[in-house]
Design a protein around this nucleic acid. Structure first.
Lengths: 108, 108
DNA sequence: TTCTAATATAAGCACCTACTAAAGTTCTGG
DNA sequence: CCAGAACTTTAGTAGGTGCTTATATTAGAA
């Protein structure tokens, strides 16, 4: 499943927002989503599965709980795709910034 | 239609890539897409309509031709949404860069 | 005006996706 | 071991999306 297919769903985007700050058990995520979107816990679990399978989230087992966290890799891919359009709204680098960027690249 | 719904479709993403560099008449876009994806001109026209209606593309009439170009606004929104995750992969700003960013903000 | 090129729109159909309800799994406490 | 809590998985379904074919529109050429 392509990254944009995953992000297309507003529920999945909201889940990622919730996980962006810190990890959360599935139950907490489900509670928020059930309240905000009016869907069942099973539906949330299915969305979490999509996020897992597509690499947007990782799970850690803690007893009967499953703790979910963001895996940023696919989001980074999306960011990379967007890069080609960034010139439309970002101001050009000025000389000093260019130098800094250059220095950083060398440092690596 | 939400921005991510629009970007979900690979044909529409490809069209935006084509338009990213420079504007193109619908016919040129259709020729490329027909070849790359094996779909008809009508289908491409429908995708162009979606891009128009959702604000991703603008049209300029030139005789019998319609010249399409990227409108970056919705892409910028997507970029803004992604910003909250950028901390996962971007290194922290160092002191000098922070100063530059601060100066720019003041300058505005 | 008539013909053709360039493009858009309409109608109809085949998937695909997100949902619900119900059943299955796995852990923990008594 | 049993009950219940925390999740996941399965089966079935309604609605949405993207495609094709056919038709409409509009501009320029003859």
């Amino acid at each position: 499943m392509h990254a944009f297919d995953v992000l297309r769903d507003p529920v999945r985007r909201r889940i990622l927002e919730l996980l962006a700050g810190e990890e959360h058990p599935a139950g907490e995520v489900a509670a928020v989503i059930e309240r905000e979107f009016g869907i069942t816990q099973a539906a949330v679990s299915q969305h979490l599965k999509v996020l897992r399978d597509s690499g947007f989230a990782t799970v850690r087992i803690d007893g009967a709980r499953r703790i979910y966290a963001v895996d940023p890799e696919p989001l980074r891919d999306v960011d990379a795709w967007l890069a080609r359009f960034r010139g439309f709204w970002e101001p050009k680098l000025d000389a000093l910034e260019t130098e800094i960027a250059r220095g950083k690249r060398k440092a690596k």
